[in-house]
């Protein structure tokens, strides 16, 4: 064991310049560690928290369907989307506020419901547990929306990068916002580049077919969760 020597106040004395330098060093070191930790949170922490929240939201969605509650309620899950190419599915929450998006992808209020003519617009964070990889979706890739009663198979028609102000991408008719919709579309929005916010990555898809829940899972989801 080391011997503890009695200390006097003079032991702590050092020239004021060195004292100041040590203080600045300590503050910088602390800020550096804080930033690193925050970066870890932004990359992993948030993704884990959303993944954990999804478990609860998915169960809630099944309960709502079992109870025959299909009217969308803000903050409550309203549908499920599957992207077989990415081997992923999510329960989608109604609303696109921070609190909604902290539970998973969110459905823009007042945009179409799955299967309807119009545009089902869904936003999600660009993190590993949500829309990180949707830039891998290209023309012809499948996105399936699942409701209480049916499966709606959409095929990607277009991927584009837009400015954050281009709200026409979620308009009922994203090809021409001034004309009424004539197709059933589904649109995903997320941020681009990753961890930055000066663009939005948009994936448009169009309904190609639908089948009732009673007809079983669509062939497109075979071998996927």
């Amino acid at each position: 064991m080391e011997q503890e020597t009695p200390r006097h106040a003079e032991d702590d004395w050092e020239p004021s310049g060195r004292r100041a330098a040590r203080a600045v060093g300590e503050v910088m070191l602390t800020l550096g560690l804080l930033l690193l930790l925050f970066a870890a949170y932004a990359v992993y922490g948030k993704a884990w928290q959303i993944e954990a929240a999804q478990d609860g939201v998915a169960a809630e969605l099944d309960e709502r369907w079992a109870a025959n509650e299909v009217r969308p309620v803000a903050g409550q899950p309203m549908a499920r989307i599957h992207i077989p190419k990415l081997d992923r599915k999510w329960a989608v929450v109604e609303g696109v506020d921070q609190s909604d998006l902290s539970k998973g992808p969110g459905h823009y209020p007042r945009t179409a419901q799955p299967g309807e003519v119009g545009n089902v617009a869904i936003a999600g964070h660009r993190i590993s547990s949500v829309f990180w990889d949707i830039d891998h979706l290209h023309k012809g890739d499948t996105i399936v929306a699942e409701t209480k009663t049916g499966w709606f198979v959409y095929k990607v028609t277009r991927q584009r990068l837009v400015r954050p102000t281009q709200v026409e991408v979620i308009a009922p008719n994203p090809d021409d916002e001034n004309r009424p919709p004539d197709k059933a579309m589904l649109t995903l929005t997320t941020c681009n580049p990753k961890f930055q916010n000066w663009q939005r990555l948009i994936v448009h898809a169009e309904l190609v077919r639908e089948q009732a829940k009673s007809a079983g899972r669509p062939a497109e989801l075979k071998g996927h969760p």
Partner: peptide
């Protein structure tokens, strides 16, 4: 702290128009 800070920072805005 981080969830609060993250909500304020514009690091991951994913919606259009908002």
């Amino acid at each position: 702290v981080f969830p609060l800070v993250d909500g304020v920072l514009p690091t991951d805005d994913v919606t259009v128009g908002g």
